[in-house]
Protein backbone atom coordinates (compact mmCIF):
# COMPACT_ATOMS: atom_id res chain seq x y z
CA UNK A 1 0.00 0.00 0.00
CA UNK A 2 1.19 3.49 -0.90
CA UNK A 3 0.43 6.78 0.85
CA UNK A 4 0.02 10.10 -0.92
CA UNK A 5 -0.57 13.36 0.87
CA UNK A 6 -2.69 15.25 -1.62
CA UNK A 7 -2.04 18.98 -1.86
CA UNK A 8 -5.01 20.28 -3.82
CA UNK A 9 -8.15 19.20 -5.65
CA UNK A 10 -6.45 19.10 -9.04
CA UNK A 11 -4.00 16.52 -7.73
CA UNK A 12 -6.86 14.60 -6.13
CA UNK A 13 -8.84 14.43 -9.38
CA UNK A 14 -5.81 13.15 -11.28
CA UNK A 15 -4.90 10.62 -8.60
CA UNK A 16 -8.46 9.30 -8.49
CA UNK A 17 -8.22 8.17 -12.11
CA UNK A 18 -6.39 5.17 -10.64
CA UNK A 19 -9.18 2.71 -9.76
CA UNK A 20 -7.01 1.14 -7.03
CA UNK A 21 -6.72 4.44 -5.16
CA UNK A 22 -8.96 5.26 -2.20
CA UNK A 23 -9.63 8.53 -0.43
CA UNK A 24 -8.37 8.60 3.15
CA UNK A 25 -10.18 11.27 5.13
CA UNK A 26 -10.47 10.77 8.91
CA UNK A 27 -9.65 7.09 8.54
CA UNK A 28 -12.01 6.00 11.32
CA UNK A 29 -13.82 3.62 8.95
CA UNK A 30 -11.33 2.99 6.16
CA UNK A 31 -8.38 2.02 8.38
CA UNK A 32 -10.59 -0.48 10.24
CA UNK A 33 -11.71 -1.96 6.92
CA UNK A 34 -8.15 -2.24 5.61
CA UNK A 35 -6.93 -4.00 8.75
CA UNK A 36 -9.96 -6.27 8.64
CA UNK A 37 -9.20 -7.18 5.03
CA UNK A 38 -12.51 -5.73 3.81
CA UNK A 39 -10.81 -3.00 1.77
CA UNK A 40 -7.47 -3.28 0.00
CA UNK A 41 -6.61 -0.06 -1.81
CA UNK A 42 -3.18 0.16 -3.41
CA UNK A 43 -2.91 3.89 -2.79
CA UNK A 44 -4.29 5.98 0.03
CA UNK A 45 -5.03 9.55 -0.97
CA UNK A 46 -4.93 11.61 2.22
CA UNK A 47 -7.22 14.62 1.68
CA UNK A 48 -6.77 15.97 5.21
CA UNK A 49 -4.57 18.86 4.10
CA UNK A 50 -6.54 20.12 1.12
CA UNK A 51 -7.67 23.56 2.31
CA UNK A 52 -10.65 23.83 -0.06
CA UNK A 53 -12.20 20.61 1.30
CA UNK A 54 -12.32 21.76 4.89
CA UNK A 55 -14.28 24.38 6.78
CA UNK A 56 -17.78 25.74 7.26
CA UNK A 57 -19.22 28.86 5.69
CA UNK A 58 -22.53 30.55 5.02
CA UNK A 59 -23.25 31.39 1.41
CA UNK A 60 -26.46 32.33 -0.41
CA UNK A 61 -28.75 31.12 2.35
CA UNK A 62 -26.94 27.82 2.75
CA UNK A 63 -24.40 26.34 5.10
CA UNK A 64 -21.53 24.85 3.12
CA UNK A 65 -19.45 22.23 4.87
CA UNK A 66 -16.27 20.96 3.25
CA UNK A 67 -16.30 17.17 2.91
CA UNK A 68 -13.14 16.75 5.00
CA UNK A 69 -14.41 18.89 7.90
CA UNK A 70 -14.28 16.90 11.13
CA UNK A 71 -17.36 16.17 13.17
CA UNK A 72 -15.76 18.04 16.10
CA UNK A 73 -15.32 21.17 13.96
CA UNK A 74 -18.98 21.03 12.92
CA UNK A 75 -20.11 20.57 16.53
CA UNK A 76 -18.13 23.67 17.51
CA UNK A 77 -19.74 25.83 14.81
CA UNK A 78 -22.21 28.35 16.23
CA UNK A 79 -23.90 28.90 12.86
CA UNK A 80 -24.57 25.15 12.64
CA UNK A 81 -25.83 25.04 16.21
CA UNK A 82 -28.21 27.92 15.49
CA UNK A 83 -29.52 26.94 12.08
CA UNK A 84 -29.18 23.13 11.92
CA UNK A 85 -29.81 21.94 15.48
CA UNK A 86 -30.61 18.35 14.46
CA UNK A 87 -27.17 18.07 12.85
CA UNK A 88 -25.50 19.18 16.08
CA UNK A 89 -27.56 16.74 18.15
CA UNK A 90 -26.89 13.81 15.84
CA UNK A 91 -23.15 14.47 15.56
CA UNK A 92 -22.83 14.78 19.35
CA UNK A 93 -23.89 11.13 19.54
CA UNK A 94 -21.65 9.89 16.74
CA UNK A 95 -18.88 7.51 17.84
CA UNK A 96 -16.84 9.04 20.64
CA UNK A 97 -14.78 12.17 21.16
CA UNK A 98 -11.76 10.36 19.75
CA UNK A 99 -13.72 9.33 16.65
CA UNK A 100 -15.29 12.77 16.12
CA UNK A 101 -11.89 14.45 16.33
CA UNK A 102 -10.83 12.49 13.24
CA UNK A 103 -14.02 11.46 11.44
CA UNK A 104 -15.34 13.75 8.71
CA UNK A 105 -18.78 14.56 7.36
CA UNK A 106 -17.91 13.54 3.81
CA UNK A 107 -16.46 10.29 5.12
CA UNK A 108 -19.57 9.43 7.10
CA UNK A 109 -21.70 9.95 3.97
CA UNK A 110 -19.37 8.23 1.48
CA UNK A 111 -19.17 5.23 3.81
CA UNK A 112 -22.94 4.89 3.25
CA UNK A 113 -23.81 2.90 6.34
CA UNK A 114 -27.58 2.39 6.77
CA UNK A 115 -26.88 3.69 10.30
CA UNK A 116 -24.84 6.78 9.31
CA UNK A 117 -25.72 9.25 12.08
CA UNK A 118 -25.04 12.39 10.04
CA UNK A 119 -27.35 11.27 7.23
CA UNK A 120 -30.53 11.65 9.30
CA UNK A 121 -30.27 15.42 9.89
CA UNK A 122 -28.85 16.06 6.43
CA UNK A 123 -31.79 14.24 4.81
CA UNK A 124 -34.18 16.32 6.94
CA UNK A 125 -32.53 19.57 5.91
CA UNK A 126 -32.64 18.64 2.19
CA UNK A 127 -28.86 18.72 1.90
CA UNK A 128 -27.17 18.56 -1.48
CA UNK A 129 -23.72 17.27 -2.31
CA UNK A 130 -21.35 19.02 -4.66
CA UNK A 131 -19.45 16.20 -6.35
CA UNK A 132 -16.46 16.52 -8.62
CA UNK A 133 -15.47 13.88 -11.14
CA UNK A 134 -13.72 13.27 -14.45
CA UNK A 135 -16.67 14.84 -16.30
CA UNK A 136 -16.72 17.97 -14.17
CA UNK A 137 -18.67 19.06 -11.13
CA UNK A 138 -22.30 18.16 -10.44
CA UNK A 139 -24.75 18.55 -7.59
CA UNK A 140 -26.93 15.74 -6.30
CA UNK A 141 -29.55 15.74 -3.55
CA UNK A 142 -28.57 13.60 -0.56
CA UNK A 143 -32.01 11.97 -0.88
CA UNK A 144 -31.04 9.63 -3.70
CA UNK A 145 -27.28 9.61 -3.05
CA UNK A 146 -27.41 6.39 -1.03
CA UNK A 147 -28.03 3.34 -3.21
CA UNK A 148 -27.53 0.55 -0.66
CA UNK A 149 -25.27 -0.48 2.20
CA UNK A 150 -21.84 0.95 1.27
CA UNK A 151 -23.15 2.03 -2.15
CA UNK A 152 -23.58 5.60 -3.32
CA UNK A 153 -24.08 7.66 -6.46
CA UNK A 154 -20.32 8.36 -6.50
CA UNK A 155 -18.92 7.18 -9.85
CA UNK A 156 -15.33 5.99 -10.28
CA UNK A 157 -13.03 9.02 -10.00
CA UNK A 158 -15.58 11.13 -8.11
CA UNK A 159 -15.13 12.83 -4.79
CA UNK A 160 -17.43 14.84 -2.51
CA UNK A 161 -16.40 18.47 -2.39
CA UNK A 162 -19.05 20.18 -0.27
CA UNK A 163 -22.15 19.30 1.68
CA UNK A 164 -24.58 22.17 1.08
CA UNK A 165 -27.50 22.63 3.46
CA UNK A 166 -30.16 25.28 2.84
CA UNK A 167 -30.79 27.21 6.05
CA UNK A 168 -34.39 26.46 7.02
CA UNK A 169 -36.71 29.33 7.83
CA UNK A 170 -37.32 29.67 11.58
CA UNK A 171 -40.23 27.87 13.21
CA UNK A 172 -39.35 24.23 12.65
CA UNK A 173 -39.50 22.10 15.74
CA UNK A 174 -36.44 19.82 15.76
CA UNK A 175 -36.44 16.20 16.95
CA UNK A 176 -33.76 13.53 16.98
CA UNK A 177 -33.53 10.29 18.86
CA UNK A 178 -31.10 7.42 18.44
CA UNK A 179 -31.81 4.11 20.11
CA UNK A 180 -28.77 1.98 20.93
CA UNK A 181 -27.35 -0.21 23.67
CA UNK A 182 -25.40 2.72 25.11
CA UNK A 183 -24.96 6.39 24.38
CA UNK A 184 -21.40 6.43 23.02
CA UNK A 185 -19.71 4.26 20.41
CA UNK A 186 -22.91 2.60 19.43
CA UNK A 187 -24.30 1.81 16.02
CA UNK A 188 -27.95 2.78 16.06
CA UNK A 189 -30.56 0.05 16.44
CA UNK A 190 -32.85 2.65 14.95
CA UNK A 191 -32.87 6.43 14.80
CA UNK A 192 -35.44 9.01 13.79
CA UNK A 193 -35.13 12.70 13.10
CA UNK A 194 -37.95 15.11 12.42
CA UNK A 195 -38.68 18.72 11.56
CA UNK A 196 -42.25 19.74 12.28
CA UNK A 197 -44.07 23.07 11.87
CA UNK A 198 -47.35 23.57 13.58
CA UNK A 199 -49.59 26.60 13.02
CA UNK A 200 -52.65 26.72 15.23
CA UNK A 201 -53.49 23.03 15.48
CA UNK A 202 -52.41 22.27 11.91
CA UNK A 203 -49.28 20.49 10.70
CA UNK A 204 -48.08 22.92 8.03
CA UNK A 205 -44.70 21.30 7.51
CA UNK A 206 -43.34 17.88 8.36
CA UNK A 207 -40.22 15.91 7.50
CA UNK A 208 -39.10 12.57 8.89
CA UNK A 209 -35.89 10.61 8.34
CA UNK A 210 -34.85 7.27 9.80
CA UNK A 211 -31.67 5.24 10.10
CA UNK A 212 -30.88 1.53 10.52
CA UNK A 213 -34.32 0.50 9.28
CA UNK A 214 -33.68 0.14 5.54
CA UNK A 215 -30.71 -0.56 3.25
CA UNK A 216 -29.92 3.17 3.42
CA UNK A 217 -30.86 6.09 5.67
CA UNK A 218 -34.24 7.23 4.35
CA UNK A 219 -36.79 10.03 4.35
CA UNK A 220 -40.28 8.84 5.29
CA UNK A 221 -42.03 10.64 2.43
CA UNK A 222 -45.21 8.57 2.63
CA UNK A 223 -45.76 9.58 6.25
CA UNK A 224 -45.02 13.22 5.49
CA UNK A 225 -47.44 13.41 2.56
CA UNK A 226 -50.22 11.65 4.45
CA UNK A 227 -50.23 13.95 7.48
CA UNK A 228 -49.16 17.32 6.03
CA UNK A 229 -51.96 19.92 6.31
CA UNK A 230 -53.86 17.77 8.79
CA UNK A 231 -54.82 18.86 12.27
CA UNK A 232 -52.50 17.34 14.86
CA UNK A 233 -54.88 14.89 16.53
CA UNK A 234 -54.34 11.53 18.23
CA UNK A 235 -55.80 9.86 15.12
CA UNK A 236 -53.20 11.54 12.93
CA UNK A 237 -50.40 10.55 15.31
CA UNK A 238 -51.61 6.92 15.17
CA UNK A 239 -51.84 7.04 11.40
CA UNK A 240 -48.28 8.43 11.18
CA UNK A 241 -47.03 5.69 13.47
CA UNK A 242 -48.75 2.98 11.41
CA UNK A 243 -47.48 4.35 8.09
CA UNK A 244 -43.95 4.77 9.44
CA UNK A 245 -43.91 1.12 10.51
CA UNK A 246 -45.14 0.12 7.05
CA UNK A 247 -42.70 2.27 5.11
CA UNK A 248 -39.48 0.88 6.60
CA UNK A 249 -37.81 -2.43 5.74
CA UNK A 250 -35.57 -3.35 8.65
CA UNK A 251 -33.65 -6.58 9.07
CA UNK A 252 -32.87 -8.88 11.99
CA UNK A 253 -29.23 -8.59 12.99
CA UNK A 254 -26.97 -8.80 16.04
CA UNK A 255 -28.24 -5.48 17.36
CA UNK A 256 -32.00 -6.03 17.19
CA UNK A 257 -34.85 -7.75 15.40
CA UNK A 258 -36.71 -6.25 12.49
CA UNK A 259 -39.94 -6.24 14.52
CA UNK A 260 -38.33 -4.28 17.33
CA UNK A 261 -36.89 -1.74 14.89
CA UNK A 262 -40.31 -1.28 13.29
CA UNK A 263 -41.86 -0.58 16.69
CA UNK A 264 -39.08 1.87 17.61
CA UNK A 265 -39.58 3.86 14.40
CA UNK A 266 -43.33 4.01 14.92
CA UNK A 267 -42.93 5.14 18.51
CA UNK A 268 -40.34 7.79 17.67
CA UNK A 269 -42.46 9.24 14.88
CA UNK A 270 -45.39 9.46 17.30
CA UNK A 271 -43.16 10.99 19.96
CA UNK A 272 -41.83 13.63 17.56
CA UNK A 273 -45.38 14.70 16.72
CA UNK A 274 -46.49 14.81 20.36
CA UNK A 275 -43.48 16.94 21.33
CA UNK A 276 -43.92 19.33 18.42
CA UNK A 277 -46.55 21.85 19.55
Amino acid sequence: MRYQQVVDEAELLTALSDPAAAILSGGTDLLVKIRGGVAAPETLLDIGRIPTLSGIRESNGSIEIGAATTETEILASSIVQETLPVLTTALAGLGSIQIRNRGTLGGNLANASPAADSAIPLLLYDAELDLVGPNGPRTVPLDGFFLGPGKTALEPGDYIRTIRVPIPEPGWCPFYHKVGKRRALTIAIASVGALIRIEGDRIVGVRFAAGSVAPTPIRLHAVEERIRSNALTEEVVDEARRLAMESVSPIDDVRATADYRRCVVGDLVARALRLAP
Binding site: G27, V32, D46
Partner: peptide
Protein backbone atom coordinates in the same frame (compact mmCIF):
# COMPACT_ATOMS: atom_id res chain seq x y z
CA UNK B 1 -7.22 16.68 20.79
CA UNK B 2 -7.71 13.10 22.00
CA UNK B 3 -7.63 10.56 19.16
CA UNK B 4 -7.34 6.80 18.84
CA UNK B 5 -3.73 6.32 17.72
CA UNK B 6 -4.76 2.97 16.19
CA UNK B 7 -6.89 4.87 13.66
CA UNK B 8 -4.31 7.43 12.58
CA UNK B 9 -1.45 6.65 10.23
CA UNK B 10 1.91 7.97 11.36
CA UNK B 11 2.13 9.74 8.00
CA UNK B 12 -1.23 11.44 8.57
Amino acid sequence: QPVNSCLVLALQ
